[in-house]
Design a binder for these strands. Structure first.
Lengths: 347, 347
DNA sequence: CATCCGGCCGTAAACGTTTACGGATTGTCG
DNA sequence: CGACAATCCGTAAACGTTTACGGCCGGATG
């Protein structure tokens, strides 16, 4: 693997100093004649600047990392999909860290910021921002955008912007809708209470019931994981315990898929017997049959917002931390209404 | 943003030279006492090595890029999902380039290799490897793995490994299956003939028909894009032209989704009236109703293979280019058999 | 003609590491 | 006690850029 030409090679061939070469290549004012000579030499040698050397000198890498629990999760895919073009547009490369939900890994990424291999980080911590996260962020002294909730008391040194959604309102929208179509025994299939979304959605469910003057019934609640098979297990358990349930609120779309599987298997009509609502409004929601009514937490919008905040901070320097709240909305599909004539739409 | 400690800071505090610090930090043999002093200083200062400086000196970045058409496509997500942990395990970071199917962009990534911001590249070019691709790869002098097909005559300097699948056999598997369940008028919904998969699958369809002694009928073929709504349009056109069709072979799962939409809309039973087969066997296939029989082209396996080849070359140095062919297989689901009792499974 | 000013350019330092090389110290052995 | 080997460490160069600084040369001006 022979070495490519460097600025020095060009300087020799053009008969000028490396400083001149650098100036020409960076478009700094230089005599016409010199410019031509350097350009010519660079062309002939097929010169390409070494980005590592440039990074070392300029103290910037033009790279940004995005850390998430699982790149297989459609929610994160939607975010990456929005983030990538914005970063590219601004001249940054994108690094992906899929932490597998491993808290140690997540912290590893945060601590890794100190190696300065990226200029900034977007992170979506599954289990919330702990004391250790905060420590690592402060020590990093590189801008970080957190997607998800933040502890109340971020210390001053922390360069943290925040994008969050309001799953409380999201759950509320879903339950209002279910109530409006006449459902009164609304079950809830949640994810782990140890996760931020899990905890928030649990609280939101109780609140929403209260607002609707519906009783809270433990038998109508089941906790599992945020996956399809876990959703199926939970649905089976809940249906066995409370056969009279007439709607299922699911803490994400995958759980809802599992619930749909079980309802079909048991011959219960959706939405006739049981209406189903998912959460996240992923691509999957328009693929199921019946299509899935789902609470959109604006994944794409959250991705865009996060990228925007980070780029703004990188380009315009220090400023007060900002918070962007993305409003949830409800996308009503077949699982809570009568079968539509024409389903689907593009993904 | 104050500057962090460098090797020099540590050297001062520990009262030794920077060479000693480096040696200690890299675990080279050093006197016990010096080791302690350096370690102590490093700890106290919270030293973290600067990865850019290290890269410059070591001429390696510990980064690998993966370039694909669209990170939103489940096929690529499946690949990334496999690639990421393998790279992490080997100590590499992962960069993602989603080129949007833009050929210029794709070449940009390839040319960018010469900036040496990554040690290697996995690329899946949508429209095949052109003359220009080859040029860029040779000039890059960095190892590249291409997922997809390669021109016959790669020049010697090109450090290219290759992972491909055999969509010909894949289509064949699907048509054999359809034939075996008694279908004789098998339609084909393809993607653009200008793409590598599109062209290959078109040829494979003709061959497979021939092998089965079925006539090739132009009315049974429709060409569109690899997306759901395009698939729907194509299905509608084909059904109008050839109402007697009893099976639809789709060039990918998204097209198949569109086809399922239309069949449902027209009240045709799947698989009773029309059987449907998709291709790629993405996560979506187990979500539809009926679940979708699909040709698996081993996305996950291709991802693993690509990562394996690249890592091998990076770790063990130059060697003959290798080719890995991943065998396709057929995953039979509800869209070609009677409705199952229990659908689904984990995603 | 002497002076000054401005435009270009070259020298050298800096970014933060790793490592070749040789000098110093210590210990061993004759 | 002297010579030599073995250890350990410090100096300095190198990786490929960018940029501060000062020198040189030309022309304009008094």
């Amino acid at each position: 693997m022979t070495e490519g030409p460097t600025i020095t090679t060009i300087a020799q061939r053009a008969g000028v100093s490396i400083a001149s070469v650098s100036r020409v290549l960076n478009g700094l004012p230089t005599r016409e004649d010199t410019v031509r000579r350097v350009m010519r030499a660079a062309d002939e040698l097929g010169y390409v600047p070494n980005s590592v050397a440039r990074s070392l000198r300029n103290r910037r890498t033009d790279q940004i990392a995005f850390a998430m629990a699982d790149i297989g999760n459609p929610v994160y895919v939607a975010m990456v999909r929005e983030v990538q073009p914005l970063l590219k547009e601004a001249g940054y490369r994108l690094l992906i860290h899929s932490t597998d939900g491993d808290a140690e890994d997540e912290l590893g990424v945060l601590r890794g910021l100190r190696e300065r291999y990226v200029d900034g980080l977007i992170i979506s911590p599954l289990r919330g921002v702990t004391e250790e996260h905060v420590e690592a962020i402060v020590a990093a002294r590189a801008p970080v955008v957190v997607i998800g909730s933040l502890p109340e008391d971020m210390p001053d040194g922390a360069l943290v912007d925040n994008v969050r959604t309001d799953s409380r309102t999201g759950v509320r929208l879903a339950l209002d809708h279910l109530h409006a179509i006449g459902r009164r025994r609304i079950g809830f299939l949640n994810g782990p209470l140890g996760t931020v979304p899990g905890a928030a959605r649990a609280a939101a469910y109780r609140e929403a019931l209260e607002a609707l003057d519906l009783p809270y019934d433990e038998d109508l609640v089941e906790v599992g994981d945020f996956y399809r098979d876990s959703g199926a297990r939970a649905a089976r358990a809940l249906l066995a315990r409370a056969p009279g349930v007439d709607a299922l609120m699911c803490a994400n779309d995958l759980i809802a898929l599992g619930a749909l599987d079980v309802l079909r298997e048991q011959g219960r009509d959706v939405p006739g017997d049981v209406a189903v609502v998912g959460m996240d409004d992923t691509d999957l929601a328009s693929v199921t049959w019946p299509t899935l009514t789902s609470v959109s937490l604006g994944s794409a919008e959250r991705g865009r917002a996060a990228a925007g905040l980070l780029l703004d901070r990188l380009q315009n320097g220090p400023r007060e931390p900002r918070v962007v709240v993305v409003r949830p909305s409800l996308t009503i599909r077949g699982s809570t209404t009568l079968p539509e004539a024409s389903p689907g739409g593009a993904r």
